[in-house]
Amino acid sequence: MSSDVGHNGSEARRRGRGRRPADEVRAEVVAAAGQILMEEGMSAFTIERVAARSGASKVTLYKWWPSKGALALDGYTHAVSHDLEFPDTGDVEADLTSQVRAFIGVLNGPAGRAIAELIGQSQTDHELAAAFRERYSAPRRALAVHTLGIAQGRGQIRADVDPEVVVDQLWGAGYHRLLIPDQPLTVEFADALVATIMAGLRPR
């Protein structure tokens, strides 16, 4: 019996005890999507498999997500959200180092393969591209910009620095090494990246 069938059986028994709240169903669908994506990648990711593992109907999934790519993206976001939390210790360099290290660590695991596949698929899947911007990249960018803005208010970063450009420099460098793997994604790279960029950000 496959793991999906096993999960489906347990969910069927749960449904037998009554209708599940929509929020609970959605949370279980997203968790199942993340599990399948991390375990096997986009090549094995289907609406049918997510429905079987979560115990939700395919009709429900198609009602909530415009494409399997959009569902996979929500699964990815759920799977990595804890790892990519942004610390705030009051020391912007330490916080950036911690976050970029975590980001590089995520890219080095199954999530790295998954996000590379999602980025690739988003080039031809317009619904996935829109979901990527709205549900993942834009919120994460906004969080980083907010953190850098706080550091500017504390006088740790020059006031004339554009936080949007810093975001592209820091996290864009990680995506560059993921998608064009000429150089490895390492902790040393994360540390050197932050140290180099901070050297230009500190008040003169």
Rank of each mutant, 00 (worst) to 15 (best):
A114E: 05
E117Q: 14
G112K: 00
T186H: 01
V106M: 15
Q183D: 14
Q183F: 15
Q123E: 12
D168I: 13
E164I: 08
F189S: 02
N108K: 13
V106Y: 05
N108E: 15
D182Q: 14
R140M: 14
I104Y: 09
R135I: 07
A159T: 13
L107Y: 04
A116K: 08
V165P: 01
P181R: 07
L118N: 04
D125Q: 06
Q99I: 14
A151R: 07
G105A: 11
G109R: 07
L107S: 09
E164G: 15
R135W: 09
P110C: 04
R133I: 11
I104P: 00
V167P: 10
I115F: 03
I119S: 06
H126V: 12
L185P: 04
P184K: 03
G174K: 00
R158F: 01
Q99G: 10
Q123V: 09
Q121F: 08
L107Q: 10
A114K: 03
R141V: 07
P181V: 05
A142G: 08
R133V: 11
L148I: 09
L148W: 05
L118H: 04
Q169E: 08
I119N: 10
L148V: 01
Q169G: 04
D160R: 10
V187T: 12
V166M: 02
E127F: 05
F132L: 15
L178T: 06
G149M: 05
P110E: 06
L185C: 03
I115D: 03
L128G: 07
Q121G: 02
R113L: 11
V187L: 09
T147M: 12
D182C: 08
E164Y: 11
D125A: 06
I157Q: 00
V161T: 11
L178N: 06
G149V: 01
P184Y: 02
V106P: 04
L170H: 07
H146W: 07
A102F: 07
I119F: 13
L107R: 08
R141I: 05
R113I: 12
P110G: 03
V165N: 11
E117A: 11
V100R: 03
R141M: 06
N108D: 13
E127S: 12
A138Y: 09
